[in-house]
């Protein structure tokens, strides 16, 4: 790419930046805070409930996350979750209910290409990277910790 073209692109990028409307940052921020906060409060309700019946904290955590994931899936099936996300933004995306939504939304969308080659292959099309990089990074830090504390063997 020659210099004149580069300059043209740079100038146009600037024009685009000026023409693009800014997001309502404050409104989005407040909505994300409230949406995420409310979802976590519901999570706390489950946590307090399961704390009584589960033997350990790790298990309470696991069951709470799973309960919220089930809730997220149901809300997605009923068509409520994309409505919530359009307003709550990251407040709906970041909780595990949002993770669950990515799985359910993909499953609903791609079942049209069949249950094996459609839904089966594409269910984790968005959630996949979360698992892959969660496990990869978790593996690395756990290994590091094991080496440092000498608990590998």
């Amino acid at each position: 790419m020659d210099k004149a073209q580069k300059d043209l692109h740079a100038r146009y990028q600037q024009m685009v930046k000026e023409a693009t409307p800014q997001p309502n940052r404050w409104k989005n921020l407040v909505m994300a805070f409230i949406t995420g906060g409310v979802i976590c409060t519901i999570g706390q309700l489950f946590y307090n409930l399961f704390e009584v019946i589960e033997p350990s904290r790790l298990e309470t955590t696991a069951v709470t996350q799973a309960a919220m994931i089930a809730l997220g899936a149901i809300a997605t099936g009923l068509g409520l979750y994309d409505w919530l996300a359009e307003r709550g933004g990251m407040g709906a995306a970041i909780p595990v209910t949002g993770f669950s939504n990515t799985v359910t939304a993909a499953a609903m969308e791609f079942k049209r290409e069949g249950y094996i080659l459609g839904m089966g292959t594409k269910m984790f099309v968005i959630a996949g990277p979360v698992l892959v990089y969660g496990i990869l990074s978790g593996f690395v830090v756990s290994l590091l910790r094991a080496v440092l504390t000498g608990s590998l063997f």
Partner: peptide, 17 residues
């Protein structure tokens, strides 16, 4: 949407553009 972007029910907050 499904060809160029995301599944319909996905939690996406659309940008103004």
């Amino acid at each position: 949407e499904r060809q160029f972007r995301y599944p319909i029910e996905l939690n996406i907050q659309h940008k103004k553009s």
